[in-house]
Design a protein around this nucleic acid. Sequence first.
DNA 1: ATAATATACATCAGTTTCTTATGTATATAA
DNA 2: TTATATACATAAGAAACTGATGTATATTAT
Lengths: 115, 115
Amino acid sequence: MSSNALVKGSLQTIILKLLEENEKMYGYEITQKVKELTAGEIKITEGALYPALHKLEAEGLLTTEIQQVDNRVRKYYSLTKDGKKEVSSKLAELQAFVENMQRIINPGLKPEFSL
Amino acid sequence: MSSNALVKGSLQTIILKLLEENEKMYGYEITQKVKELTAGEIKITEGALYPALHKLEAEGLLTTEIQQVDNRVRKYYSLTKDGKKEVSSKLAELQAFVENMQRIINPGLKPEFSL
DNA sequence: ATAATATACATCAGTTTCTTATGTATATAA
DNA sequence: TTATATACATAAGAAACTGATGTATATTAT
């Protein structure tokens, strides 16, 4: 996934945040949305995405709904109540991570956050 | 390491950046510096740190120098020429990561970067 | 005195998460 | 009719971590 080591811990955060904004998305749609939003810089591979979606579902953060579209099966994912809580938690973790990296990289800088 | 999934891809960046600022550090010192800079939020475990240092040395990014201090052995690490180049590269990756996450999380926001 | 904590290195089994490849199937564009 | 796009899924192997364990000295607390 983009060969950037940082990106490798962010897949769950990305999935949950996109589902917060979109109500309902299917796997392939998520890969395309991320590619679009990041101008192709982050590419989510299927081998990473589908296991991640299955895991979030197994943890009760996502629910699924199969739809038939033009003789093709789509599996739509949505946030559960627990999933919605988890979004805030993941975003807080992301913000904390960025702040901590700023402290390490810019020592002696008053924090003025960006995320 | 801090139970935050994002932190898990950032250890090399942290090590290299600290060595850019400090010329010469030993393992235990790195764990303490990170704890201090992040107010205890990021804790680097020995099981993560030492293998990471050995790998960076094997890749030619760090050199070592043993010193005896009060009957105790310290292994000091410094950046090689390649290591210095790698610092910029890792920081650029971090910045790109943060920008891309902002695009995903704040869609429709003009970027005004922070790192 | 002595037990606990701090300093300082290191390894290793097990877990998680990723990459890359493979597989199935339909639809569309070249 | 071949390649690309859409759409799902799995699986072997790699990489980076956790948490435990091990060794050894120094200092602080009881």
